[in-house]
Design a protein around this nucleic acid. Sequence first.
DNA 1: AGATATTCATTCGTGTACACATGAAAGTCG
DNA 2: CGACTTTCATGTGTACACGAATGAATATCT
Lengths: 148, 148
Amino acid sequence: MTYQLDEQVGFLLRRAHQRHTALFAEHMPAGLTPTQFSALARLNERGPMSQNLLGREIAVDAATIKGVVDRLVTRGLVAVAPDQEDLRRVTVSLTEEGVAFVAECIPIAQEVSELTLAPLADRERTQLLADLDRLASGVQPEARSPSS
Amino acid sequence: MTYQLDEQVGFLLRRAHQRHTALFAEHMPAGLTPTQFSALARLNERGPMSQNLLGREIAVDAATIKGVVDRLVTRGLVAVAPDQEDLRRVTVSLTEEGVAFVAECIPIAQEVSELTLAPLADRERTQLLADLDRLASGVQPEARSPSS
DNA sequence: AGATATTCATTCGTGTACACATGAAAGTCG
DNA sequence: CGACTTTCATGTGTACACGAATGAATATCT
């Protein structure tokens, strides 16, 4: 009875994410998706790594990262090579073109973040990011226990 | 250089939404998805409406709502009927089974919302929901203008 | 070493999510 | 009324997103 869809976290998270995605698509070049950019940004931050690890690093499962990497390879932004030490692994790394491309995209990504957060004041932004991180991590608020 | 993927709103929104979806899947019966439930909940709140309007009411585009409604029809939770006044429209309504099913699901949905928000204290929850709503709506904070 | 378990990459199937195009039906305006 | 525009439903194509299964390679443990 008292259930209001518009007040549910899940629904609000979906709509907020939806607006961010729209802003991203509007400002990023050549149909680069948020997930694709995340992969590029992570490789840029941490260097080459196996495909599965890259997926873990950006919270994308093994089945999904496969397609993401494939598309980045097609665009020439990323290269894959077999790992010598572990024959199961495929190492993913940025190409020269990929490095240059990420450099171009980062300022745009920052602008998109800014536009997404535009409705909030600085203090609120900081708080929101911290809270979202806790939601994403599922951190339990320390139950007041005698220990510690 | 100073770009940190883990601190970007878009990335955090995606991960928070991801955790919510996982909790939803874990607790909801029979593989009902958040989007499917949103449709049912909206029909329950507002009564029968055209398929496109239902999509608008839950922020899902026309192409997507088609598939959602089709699956709900297959499950027997929803029925579609041609609108007499407007021959383009298809009216979507809950079936008896659908009404009973939503009633069962609502308490579970509330539990999922509770679990999703578990990392936050009450005051933080209220603030987060308000902020997410503003992000989703893209409301511009009134620039301090002389007028009004 | 040998049996067992885990990891990695891949494939399949299902379900959003959205851009774009199309045809039928309304609505609008001169 | 007739031309123009908008709305509605639908279809196509692309891109996540994830569960489940598979086979090869590696790790673990006795």
